[in-house]
Amino acid sequence: MVSSGALFIAVFLACVVEAVEALTIVLAAGTSRDWRSAISGVIAGVTVLALIVAALGPAVTAIPLGGLRLVVGGLLLIFGLQWLRKAILRAGGLKARHDEEAIFASELAAAQAAPAGRRGFVADWYSFTLSFKGVLLEGLEVAFIALTFGANQRNIPLASVAALAAVVVVAVAGVAVRAPLARVPENTMKFVVGIMLTSFGIFWGAEGAGAVWPGSDAALLAVVPAVAVFALVLVVLLRRAAAMSATAGTTVGGMAS
């Protein structure tokens, strides 16, 4: 079994990233439109999310451990490799870095341009739906991370506490500054979380398939650094390729002139 500390940190960091993205959407809805409607959307999203988690939680824990690790390992690999791919491309200079201020400005402009409309008790339906969708979609990823990590380690309470702590920390910070948390090193966090999710996916997926790791959980001390080194090597190669391409372009341009 992975240590409680490692489980808490992995879930907390992954959930912080999702919580920051949800906060950006809610702030855009509330700042540009109507705070009461935006908060109503948050409450509705959290309520639906709680019902989904209450239904899925017992079902996940009922799966035999071997099958659970195979399924969870595969899902974590899908999520982890997606995050890691984007993080490598950003660090390598081939993809724009994730900018919460730019995303906030984009969401703000879209919200301001949307027509106003009241439905039932909701004064501004656009603010409500924007917050609802943001909280529900990002919240589902938080729930997935907490449930999969917690169920696989047979410690859903600790994983839930880590997820809740991440959401509370981000929410409190957001309320305090009422602005997107642009100072959070989200690109670095996504790189680290991508490495962690990919590493756990490899580890648990192999275990679920029947493989036996040398040293049991201690093998993670080799798997995580191996994935990190591989990712960093790709970043270096991409940066060199980008630099060589830029140099070649400059040379060709100079000869043409």
Rank of each mutant, 00 (worst) to 15 (best):
A163I: 01
H98E: 08
N152R: 10
R97Y: 11
G73S: 00
L76F: 13
L147R: 00
L89D: 11
A162K: 02
P115G: 11
V184P: 04
V135M: 09
L77K: 06
K190N: 15
P185D: 09
V170K: 03
A162G: 07
L181W: 02
A162D: 08
I88Y: 02
G74I: 09
L147M: 05
V168A: 14
A182C: 00
F104H: 10
G120H: 04
V167N: 02
M189Q: 12
V172H: 06
F132Y: 05
G120Q: 02
A113F: 01
T148Y: 09
V142N: 10
G139H: 07
A109S: 12
V184Y: 12
M189L: 15
A105G: 04
R154G: 14
S127M: 10
P115T: 02
L164A: 15
F79I: 12
A110H: 07
I195V: 15
V170D: 06
A171H: 12
P64T: 09
K95C: 07
K190I: 13
F132Q: 07
R118T: 15
L65T: 10
G117D: 03
I156G: 00
A113I: 00
I156D: 00
L147V: 02
L181Y: 00
F79Y: 10
K95Q: 14
M196N: 07
T129E: 13
M189C: 07
A114T: 10
A163Y: 00
W83S: 08
L84A: 05
